[in-house]
Amino acid sequence: MLHALELLWQNAPLLLDGLWATLGIAAAATFFSIIGGALLGMMRASWNNAIVQAAARAYLELFRVIPILVWLFVFFFAVPAASSLDISGTLAAVTVFSLWGASEMSDIVRGALKTIPQAQYDAGRAIGLSGAQLHLRVILPQAVRRMLPGAINLVTRIIKTTSLVVIVGVVDVVKRSQQIIERTKEPFVLYAFLLLLFFALCHPLSRLSRRLEKRFN
């Protein structure tokens, strides 16, 4: 045990460096997911145009059917091959995770908007609120509360998914661990550390999400 801690302590700078890369990708993907998901979700909830709805559904299906890792491969290998654009692993990862995250987030946003009863819209109109006021002061505050648990849960999924970037050559916390294993031949300690590290990142968020969900019910 002591030996394991010492090993980790000695390699802390390398691991930290990898952790920043992991968190950076996760943070960027979260940012774009929320923005993209909010727009797409509102569009799906209120724009009753058959083509728009069909396009949105097709977009969601692409990510529901095909694994994220496959998409990562497509962006990392196929896009450069087809277009002479040189895409780094990091850029491919942020792009794919954002596109996937936005599709998931749009479901959360749409679901939350759908749970606001029509009577709330009617009541807002009845006291003379304009469309913008109605959404800003009545609908969104209620909807955001309902989105929070799902959105926080999505962040944990994005963090977990970020572990995949090692496969397209990004030097993240997994890659750093592997480099240390090459040198020290201590796979047990480092892989156990990785498990605990991801758990420490995701578990508090999961708990928060669950607590909020209970409170809002």
């Binding site: 944990t156 572990s163 796979p187 892989y191 498990l195 991801f198 758990f199 995701c202 578990h203």
Partner: peptide
């Protein structure tokens, strides 16, 4: 639920 499959697999297979 709070750890990635990738880390679980590395631990099982290499750890």
């Amino acid at each position: 639920r709070n750890t990635p499959l990738l880390a679980q697999l590395f631990f099982l297979y290499f750890g």
